[in-house]
Design a protein around this nucleic acid. Structure first.
Length: 434
RNA sequence: GCGGCCAUAGCUCAACUGGUCAGAGCGCCGGACUGUGACUCCGGAGGUUACCGGUUCGACCCCGGUUGGCCGCCCCA
């Protein structure tokens, strides 16, 4: 077999039949986020490599080994974006948005790229929907973002979602906690697993969410971030919880939850789904506050908070729910004989011009094959156009679900009216039965 | 990056310990039903058994490599 070219490992095609699920999720996000006052942002898929090194963190796995990095023809080091927060912050600074709009709210959606091993709900090209709010340090902003995610997941009909909440403190209190934690972990080093010995050197916080039972036992006895929060951070964290409660958003404080990216301060959160189909990909959305990021990238000192949802995982859950979002034609037009093919095609065109969803087999073929095609298309109605109809200007409209037929005029406006009326009637009839 | 499992038609899968085993169902196309789909019946197309090499008289089956997939670890959405 000559080598056929297939899609690159970890990247896939989305064909009609599946794409509708994606469109549904994306449409819901646009509508909902717009309702909260967020405007859509689109940034390039490729950025200066330095942007991610400086924001995400040089020592993180994402930057250290998962980025698609290459030199362009001028020798610039570019990287496919591995996440959306850094590009958004870059755009925020580049366009001096802060001077125009002190409180800025953006959302984005699109593909991200990370070179890693494939697994359930994990691809090398994956999609995220996220939002960022710049300019407010009030806990209300943290809660607005979490509320938005919660409503989003709820609107998708997803069940068994838990919101985990934690605070990582700020530049004042985090170093103190960090030092205490390292001291504690060093003392218990013999009880930790091999991986954690390494984590102790690279990122001690990660020991806290190691899945090894022995490590968990050690972590459970260790110092909690929450005991080390400075007054302002503690007040903020309390405020966040109070405001979440006021909005009736349930959450679980998890003092051992950490983040893989360096830029987070204070509030961090994760929405975790318990559906078995997700396996180890149960975190469906994650985010937090990053008050120092904008400044560290050369912008004005601007507090910010945001989140990202893994779209692939949401779609996976939606698929499991078995819901269908397929778009089917209102009407299929079949030509009874080859001599009517042109007339049928013209009629289909006129109806489409006026907004009707019409399918027609441009290949022609026997009436039977066209009827099969009509059935397969899922069209609500089929109209057979032949010599009789062309001379009389009248035709039969057949409802595919039950075979019932009605006489209708071929005049487009009248035909469309008939289709719409019959469709509405059958829809209400079906719903009143269910 | 590490470990385990796997790879047969478009899809889901068969083929005793290597010897007519390259098949079924679904899907697709056509016919029975010469102006009406679904149900039923009949027929047809479609695979050098992922790729490369090896062992053997003989390989879908055994061995090695490559590529790809699934699962776990790492990490993450």
């Amino acid at each position: 077999m000559s080598q056929k070219i297939v899609s690159v490992k970890g990247m896939r095609d989305l064909l009609p039949g599946e794409i509708e699920l994606w469109q549904h999720v994306e449409g819901l996000a646009r509508e909902l986020f717009g309702r909260y006052g967020y405007g859509e942002l689109r940034t390039p898929m490729v950025e200066d490599t330095a942007l991610f090194v400086r924001s995400v963190g040089e020592e993180t796995d994402i930057v250290g080994k998962e980025m698609y990095t290459f030199d362009d023809k001028a020798g610039r080091s570019l990287s496919m974006r591995p996440e959306g927060t850094a590009p958004a912050a870059r755009a925020y600074i580049e366009h001096s948005v802060a001077t125009q709009e002190p409180l800025t709210r953006w959302f984005y959606m699109g593909p991200m790229f990370r070179y890693e091993r494939m697994q359930t709900g994990r691809y090398r090209q994956f999609s995220q929907i996220g939002a960022e709010a710049y300019g407010s340090k009030d806990a209300a902003q943290d809660v607005e973002v979490m509320d938005m995610v919660a409503r989003f997941l709820q609107a998708l009909g997803l069940q068994d979602i838990t919101l985990n909440l934690n605070s990582l403190g700020d530049e004042v209190c985090r170093p103190q906690y960090h030092a205490k934690l390292v001291e504690y972990l060093q003392a218990h080093k013999p009880e930790l697993c091999e991986d954690c010995h390494r984590r102790l050197e690279t990122n001690p916080l990660r020991v806290l969410d190691c899945k090894n039972p022995k490590c968990q036992a050690v972590a459970a006895q260790g110092p909690s971030v929450l005991d080390f929060l400075c007054e302002p951070c503690k007040a903020h964290f309390d405020d966040v919880q109070r405001k979440l409660t006021a909005l009736e958003i349930r959450f679980v404080v998890n003092p051992r939850m950490v983040r893989g990216l360096d830029y987070y301060t204070r509030t961090v959160f994760e929405f975790v789904a318990s559906h078995p189909a997700l396996s180890t990909a149960s975190t469906v959305s994650a985010g937090g506050r990053y008050d120092k990021l904008v400044k560290s990238l050369g912008g004005p000192d601007t507090p910010a908070v945001g989140f990202a949802c893994g779209l692939d995982r949401l779609v996976l859950l939606l698929k499991e729910s078995g819901k269908s979002f397929a778009q089917v034609p209102d009407l299929f037009i079949a030509a009874a004989d080859p001599g009517s093919h042109d007339a049928a095609f013209a009629l289909a065109g006129r109806l489409r011009h006026q907004g009707l969803r019409v399918d027609f087999d441009t290949r022609g073929g026997s009436l039977k094959s066209q009827m099969k095609r009509a059935d397969k298309s899922g069209a609500h109605f089929t109209l057979v156009l032949g010599e009789l109809e062309r001379t009389s200007g009248q035709a039969k409209l057949k409802q595919m679900s039950n075979g019932q037929q009605w006489e209708t005029s071929l005049e487009p406006a009248a035909l469309i009216a008939t289709v719409r009326t019959r469709k509405a009637e059958s829809a209400s009839g079906a719903s009143s039965q269910g």
